[in-house]
């Protein structure tokens, strides 16, 4: 998909700014189908400037206190929909959720990260988004709220394709819920001649459970998740053998797209490179984890 709209201005809309979650949800309910939620606005305004969307209402969540919180509760880091990406660039996130930290560092640039949010990046539902593959690899869940209820679903599966997301018009992804388990992780992005990655790899290794999710992003419409069981990775066996299995799996099962940024075969080559770099970092190179 390529952008190139000629517009400077935004289409007309009515701006709503609820002051509480309750007010937000009833507003969403009332204008369901005619409204778009704005968190950081970076994605939404871009889409509107391209005239890809022209909602009647834009509902800002900037003044909803419940969505601004970043808190740890019950072994879960809950990232409110209006928590800016830059708030996640902290030392404690770096230590406890390295995959998240590194993914965030790879999103756009620091100025944009003062504006954009993690949930917004997820909700934009673009194949080149960095939040989605990272959240999948961390086995995050999404809290989705509407007027009368809320539900919690795995992030994995939430995005169906470009601009398509499994969230109803009267719902909002209110929080991303990231489990705080003992993990090692990384996020690698290969960008060349574009701001977007032509392939990314998010790897989260749950050290106590001895399992991992290696998630490949930007290479297909939705990310590809590879688990230790998929590749028959055996932690008691020789690392080299395991790597070979991973390579074989990638070779047989990963068929990336051809698009403006790269051809399929080159992407495949990059994915192998990033995947091996990632396992090296996560499983072998403890120094990089600090």
């Amino acid at each position: 998909m390529s952008f190139g709209g000629p517009y400077f201005t935004l289409p007309k809309f009515k701006y709503l700014r609820p002051d509480s979650l309750e007010e937000l949800l009833s507003s969403l309910h009332e204008h369901s189908g005619n409204a778009k939620i704005m968190s950081g606005g970076v994605g939404l305004l871009a889409f509107m400037k391209e005239r890809l969307t022209a909602p009647e209402y834009v509902i800002s969540i900037s003044k909803v206190p419940e969505l601004k919180t970043l808190q740890i509760k019950g072994g879960v880091l809950a990232v409110g929909a209006n928590v800016h990406l830059s708030e996640l660039e902290s030392g404690s996130i770096k230590n406890s959720l390295p995959t998240l930290y590194r993914a965030v560092k790879n999103i756009a640039d620091p100025t944009i990260r003062n504006m954009g949010t993690l949930v917004g990046d997820l909700a934009e539902a673009v194949p080149w988004g960095d939040a989605y593959p990272a959240l999948i690899s961390m086995e995050a869940e999404a809290e989705i709220s509407k007027k009368s209820s809320s539900r919690v679903v795995p992030v994995n599966g939430l995005v169906l394709g470009l601009g398509q997301i499994n969230v109803d018009d009267d719902e909002i992804i209110s929080r991303a819920l990231i489990p705080l388990r003992k993990v090692r992780g990384t996020y690698l992005k290969f960008a060349n001649g574009s701001e977007y990655g032509l392939a990314t790899v998010a790897l989260t290794y749950f050290t106590e459970e001895k399992r991992f999710n290696l998630v490949i992003g930007s290479a297909s419409e939705t990310p590809i998740t590879i688990r230790e069981s998929d590749v028959d990775w055996d932690f008691d066996k020789d690392f080299g053998t395991n790597v070979e299995k991973l390579e074989r799996y990638l070779q047989l099962n990963v068929n990336p797209v051809d698009d403006l940024l790269a051809s399929s075969d080159f992407r495949k080559n990059v994915i192998r490179y990033l995947s091996l770099q990632a396992v090296k970092e996560v499983f072998l190179d403890e120094r990089d984890q600090n």
Binding site: F3, G4, E195, Y196
Partner: peptide
């Protein structure tokens, strides 16, 4: 040398008329 190219599709449309994909 390394990045810049205005890309066209088969009908002559510019595919990267922006500073994201024209890096």
């Amino acid at each position: 040398a390394l990045f810049e190219e205005i890309k066209f599709d088969d009908s002559g449309w510019v595919l990267n008329p922006n500073l994201t994909h024209y890096y």
